[in-house]
Structures are given as structure tokens and as C-alpha cells.
Amino acid sequence: MPGEAAAVELVAASKKYREGAALQPTNLVVQRGQVHALVGLNGTGKTTLLRLVLGITAPTAGRVLVRGVDVARMKPAGWAGVGHLIDTPLVYPELTVQANLQIAGRLSGLGLGSGRAAARRLAEELLLTKWWTRRARTLSLGNRQRLGIAAALVADPDVMVLDEPTNALDPAGTVLVRRMLLERVRETGASVLVSSHHLDEVARIADQITVINSGRIIGTLAPDGIDLERRFFNLVNADVEANQRQANP
């Protein structure tokens, strides 16, 4: 039953470009009501994995399921309730904060009235009302990123896929977004699949942490354990050394 399925599931999903494999066959399950963090160094396949989940790119092999439905066969209505922010926020510089949020609401399937109300609510939640009538191009990088997060969450999604959502935020903005995500998970049972470089932040919000390196999942980390950074580098360095031994036996 789709109602009981995991929020996101990858079944031996892989992605190969002409330049080489971006993601080796990967299995991953994001349970409902959980925050699942993907951590890894730059260029290790995190964004590719998130792109597969959203159908931005198609898997070379394997399957990707969102709420139990294969992304390759997902009907448009099936994407309702999936909020995402990958690479660049869906923010148009010449439009105001208000117009950007209302458009995001309409694209996410909200009606005219409910879209306006949701835009206002998200702007208040992410402290953007001060710039409500300002064009997005005049906002600072951090405020633009907050606007992008607001646009991704405007329709109150129950599945959120976020690629380094706090990388341009100041500490206050990071705390704000973290609190907002956790509220949604605890109050509505929403699920979050998030990639991040900030191990400290990940430790504060994640129920599960998956480590990815060279396009492969190389292990998991307990978020409540001590010295997350050391354990992360232990895993990554062990994988790098194993790869080197394999390449130069």
C-alpha cells in the first residue's frame, strides 16, 4: 500500500554519465516522520542521489520510489506534497518576495487564495515579511536562500528533499530553518531527506545519517554519538585507502 510505504526508497539505483559513474547501485530508505541526512565530501554523489529522487535525472539502473510510487511512472498529482530545493532556489530575481512565494504556491498545486495565505504564512515563519515587496535581486544571499526554502515548503509538503539548505545562511538563519524542519517532522509526521556538509547541524536534526563517498554509501553514523566529525573522517579515510589499495594492489 502506498500509504504505508517509505517516504523515499532507492532500490539498486545507479547513475552513470559519459564521464563515469556518479552513483553506484544504491539502496536507501527514508522512513516516514524521520530526518535522514546524507553527508559526504564535495562531488561524491549526494546531489545526484537527490536528483534521482525528484526525477530530475533518470537512473541508469534500479528504481526510485517516493511514497511507494516509482518516480519513472509518477503522475503529476503524485508530486503534490513533495517540497524540494536542489542546486538553485526557485526564485526569480525580478519578482518580489510576495510574487515568488505566490508563484511557488501555484506551481505546488495551491489555489489562488490558499496560495496567497500560504505565501504570507511562510514569509512570517522565515522572517521575510520585512522584504515582502522587495525584488528578490535586492536580497542578500542568505535571505534569497531563505526565500528559496520558503518557496520549497510553501505547500506544507510531507516529503522534503533539500540539498545543503543552510549553506548560505547565518547562524540565526540556520537555527530558524532547523527549528522549522523539526516542527514539521514532529507535528505533521513529515519526512526530510537532506544533504549537508555541516556535521554539527546534521547531528542536531537527523534521525539517521548516511555517509556517501565516491558515489557509494559507505556507512551510517549514529547522530547522538560523540565526535561525529572524527567518526565521519574515519569512515571516509578508510574508504579512500581501500580504493587506493584496490587501484594499486
Partner: peptide, 9 residues
């Protein structure tokens, strides 16, 4: 990328 995975195709 923001225009993927939306109810609006």
C-alpha cells in the same frame, strides 16, 4: 531544477 517534481508539469 525547481520546475521538476511539481503537480504543475
Amino acid at each position: 531544477t525547481g520546475l521538476f517534481a511539481l503537480p504543475t508539469t
